[in-house]
């Protein structure tokens, strides 16, 4: 058993998150899927830190968390304001920008 397993798990989680973005319509769930993808990336970063014996990977994961927190705040605010005007949180309903 090697740390490679963590990486494979990370890849699997990332893809599950990606599929979630693709197939869910509720904007909040889509957002959660994005968070899952970010977490999968964090898992990979932490594992790389261990493999390389350097703390830089953990620092990276820390920054990803910070950025994710900021992103969630803004993203949820956007979802809120869209919901206020359109009474819907479905990403399919916001499709005015098209042909």
């Amino acid at each position: 058993m090697t740390p490679t397993y963590y990486l494979v798990l990370s890849a699997a989680l990332f893809c599950v998150g990606a599929v979630g973005v693709l197939i869910r319509r509720n904007a909040i769930v889509v957002f959660m899927s994005v968070e899952l993808m970010l977490n999968a990336g964090n898992l990979a970063l932490v594992t790389f830190a261990r493999i390389n014996g350097s703390l830089d990977g953990q620092i990276m994961a820390f920054f990803v968390m910070v950025v994710a927190a900021a992103e969630v705040v803004v993203g949820l605010a956007i979802i809120m304001s869209i919901f206020r005007t359109r009474r819907s949180a479905s990403v399919d309903d916001s499709n005015l920008l098209k042909y």
Partner: peptide
């Protein structure tokens, strides 16, 4: 994508040892 990434990582890194922190 999962297959490609997982397979690729598994094949590339194989059973490497971690240096540890």
């Amino acid at each position: 994508l999962a297959g490609l990434l997982g397979g690729g990582i598994a094949r590339a890194l194989g059973s490497i040892d971690a240096k540890g922190l």
